[in-house]
Amino acid sequence: MNKKLIIGGGIILLVVAYLFWSGMKESSVYFLTVDEFFAQQEEFTGKGARVNGEIVPGSINWDAHNLILTFQLTNGGKVLDVRHKGVAPDTFSEDVSVVVEGKYGDGIFHATQIMTKCPSKYEAKKE
């Protein structure tokens, strides 16, 4: 009984370990600000990244017919051009801080996902 249990448990753990490993390998994305991104631009070209920044006022352009959204992100320094196929999330506007997830190539960040910062105000304010 105990022997079987150990073997069975071992197999399950191996399967789980494999799932852990392969899941992590496929879905790791780096969290970066726009400036950090440009500092290591070569390293991140073609790799999954999540870039966080403010939208440059007036940079939002929505092509309704082809459903292409373009805008620029910044942290005050360099400016990142972002292109996204599809509609923007609900709270997307010039005033909000956004996180874009995707890959960088040909001078443009191709965002697969755009996230605006959270609805909850639970967090304490930075003093």
């Binding site: 799932l19 899941g23 879905s27 790791s28 969290f31």
Partner: peptide, 11 residues
């Protein structure tokens, strides 16, 4: 480094 949806779904 964040783990995306793929990781969570895979498990």
């Amino acid at each position: 480094i964040a783990l995306g949806e793929i990781y969570f779904n895979k498990i």
